[in-house]
Amino acid sequence: MSTRDEQGLYIHHTTVRFGGLLALDDVSLRVPPGRVVGIIGPNGAGKTTLFNVICGFVVPQAGAITLDGRPLRPRPDHLYRHGIARTLQGVGQFGGMTVLENVQVGQRRRARPEEAYAALERCGVAEHAGEYPGSLPYAKRKRVELARALVARPRILLLDEPAGGLDAAEIGWLAELIRSARTTVLLVEHHMDLVMSVCDEILVLDFGKPIALGTPGEIRSDPKVAEAYLGAPA
């Protein structure tokens, strides 16, 4: 049994170096179950690297990750066992498979195809189930990507720039989906309206270093964040 405090995903003092580049510099973050946490920062601040550490694509030089108090030694191909699902920034779908088959890849073993279809329905792209992802517009492919992540019913959902290329109405839909997902969500995103409206808490990275952690209100009024990331309004 783990104590209440240890429940959820816990990133402890994690450091990642690529050659001479410090990609993550002593980053810590606690994500209790059900919490939606945003990770923002300038391009190249280490946001995607943090996701890669959680997924096991990148092994940190220092630090550890625990899930419900137990150390998580992730391997990308074992992620689903830990209940972690992730979407990719660049929409990584298999071109030779139909949309439905793409989503079925994300399913747990012995899951029924109807569940994949239901996930597509939930993401509003069920009518494209039999088509190939390559023939769909970018925004639709983003929805397929979400369906593939959701179909595994993850406990932790890692979303990497899900709003990129979506229009305002679609972003409204995405916000609703995140709020109603009832799972832990880590959200890397540049669309500030979305981040501010769905996140309980926001971590700001700059050059791999955490420069702020707080509620959307606190982050919005933090001068360090304005300086490094938000900039003066155009």
């Binding site: 920062g41 300038p42 990129g164 290329g165 540049h190 490094a228 990331y229 900039g231 003066a232 155009a234």
Partner: peptide, 14 residues
């Protein structure tokens, strides 16, 4: 602005 931080977007538009 696709995939760019708000500050960078503002710089490019400026």
């Amino acid at each position: 602005s696709l995939g760019l931080a708000p500050k960078l977007t503002a710089q490019i538009l400026g």
